[in-house]
Deep mutational scan, measured.
Amino acid sequence: MISLIAALAVDRVIGMENAMPWNLPADLAWFKRNTLNKPVIMGRHTWESIGRPLPGRKNIILSSQPGTDDRVTWVKSVDEAIAACGDVPEIMVIGGGRVYEQFLPKAQKLYLTHIDAEVEGDTHFPDYEPDDWESVFSEFHDADAQNSHSYCFEILERR
């Protein structure tokens, strides 16, 4: 099963200049909980913004210009990325925008964090048809001392 995991502000903004323009430790914990011990696929820009392999996960970098870091697996196509994951129950696609666009048609599940923030962004989550998805989990949280904005975790499964 292919799943996408993303944090989205208003207007589906997911990033600005290779960074997330908010401070939500709870979302980072949600991300870790849902990706640990699963292969993660990301684009080169996302890889560069993280700066290191995510521990406890097979890191697969999709790029037309593969790098030389041998701590991760470099691939040039969506099919190659899927094959590099091996026989696993769930593959997690973690961004960025172009990689989400490439995998959305193949995805069966979306793990979304909806952030109540209007922020400037240069990267967006692809538009998706809500009628194609069923919400199977939703959990709202107010902003607090650690988390700069209110947010809602949601899991959607393709109908």
Rank of each mutant, 00 (worst) to 15 (best):
V75P: 02
K38A: 05
R98S: 05
H141C: 04
V13Q: 03
G121L: 01
V136A: 10
D11L: 04
Y128K: 04
T68I: 11
D127Q: 11
A107V: 15
E157T: 06
V13F: 05
A9S: 13
L24N: 09
P21E: 01
L112P: 02
S49K: 00
D116M: 15
A83L: 10
W30L: 10
S148A: 00
E129H: 10
Y111F: 07
I155P: 01
R158S: 05
P39Q: 04
M92A: 10
A26K: 01
L28V: 01
E17Y: 02
P89F: 05
L4S: 01
P55Q: 14
F153M: 08
D116W: 13
R33W: 05
R52H: 14
N59Q: 09
D142I: 09
R12Y: 13
W30I: 03
D142F: 12
L156N: 04
V78I: 07
T46V: 00
S49Y: 02
D127T: 12
N37F: 11
V136Q: 09
E90K: 00
R158A: 05
S138P: 00
P105N: 09
T123S: 07
G67P: 15
D70G: 12
P53H: 15
A145K: 08
H114N: 14
I50G: 00
L62Q: 01
G97C: 04
S135K: 13
D69R: 07
G43L: 01
P126R: 04
C85S: 08
T73W: 10
A6S: 15
L8S: 03
L4P: 02
L112W: 01
D122R: 01
N59L: 07
P55M: 14
A81C: 08
G86M: 09
P39L: 05
H114I: 13
K58H: 12
K32A: 05
G67M: 15
D127I: 13
D70T: 15
L8Y: 03
L24F: 09
V75H: 10
G67V: 14
W47V: 05
D127K: 14
A26G: 03
I82P: 00
T73Y: 13
Y128M: 07
G67N: 13
G97N: 05
E120K: 12
N147F: 01
G51Q: 11
S135T: 10
C152V: 09
K58F: 11
P66W: 12
P21S: 09
P89V: 07
D87V: 09
A145C: 08
P53D: 10
Q108Y: 10
S49F: 03
W133L: 03
P39D: 02
S3N: 09
V75R: 10
I82Q: 05
A9D: 02
G51D: 13
F103P: 06
I82R: 04
K32E: 03
N18G: 09
L156V: 04
